[in-house]
Amino acid sequence: MASFRQHGNGWQGRIRRRGYPDITKTFETKADAERWARSLESEIDKGQFVNVNEAQRTTLGDLIARYLTEVTPSMKGAAEDTIRLKAIMRKSIARWSMTNLSAARIATYRDERLKEVSAGTVIRELAYLSAIINHARREWGINVPNPVQMVRKPQSPQARSRVLTDEEVSKLLQALEPTGRRSHWIKPAVQLALATAMRRGELLSLRWEHIDLQGRTAFLPDTKNGDARTVPLSTVAVKVLAGIPRHISGVVLPVKFFTLDAAFKRGVRRAGLDRVRFHDLRRTAITRMAEKLPNVIELAMVSGHKSLMVLKRYYRPTASELAQKLG
Rank of each mutant, 00 (worst) to 15 (best):
S170K: 15
R95C: 04
E80H: 12
W208D: 01
R138M: 12
E70R: 14
R282L: 06
T284H: 05
P154W: 06
P188W: 14
S161D: 15
I123W: 03
I133L: 15
A136K: 05
V117T: 10
W185I: 02
M198E: 04
D280G: 12
G8T: 10
D274R: 15
K292D: 12
D81I: 14
R275D: 15
I106T: 03
I123S: 05
P254Q: 05
S97P: 01
R182Y: 11
G120W: 02
Y128R: 07
T223Y: 08
G120P: 03
I186D: 01
S39K: 15
D81C: 07
V71Q: 01
R84K: 04
Y20C: 02
E125C: 10
A237E: 05
V252L: 02
I88Y: 09
I44L: 11
E321S: 13
K153L: 12
D166K: 15
E41S: 02
A79R: 07
H247Y: 00
V148M: 05
A263H: 11
A271K: 09
I142G: 02
Q6V: 14
P317M: 11
E125Q: 12
R38P: 00
T72R: 04
R207N: 07
K224H: 00
E321M: 12
T165Y: 11
A218D: 03
T108Q: 14
A136Y: 02
I106D: 02
A119P: 01
H279W: 10
A189M: 01
T217G: 04
D212Y: 05
L260C: 03
G250Q: 04
W208Q: 00
L63K: 09
A103G: 13
L40G: 02
T59H: 05
A104H: 06
K312T: 00
R35N: 13
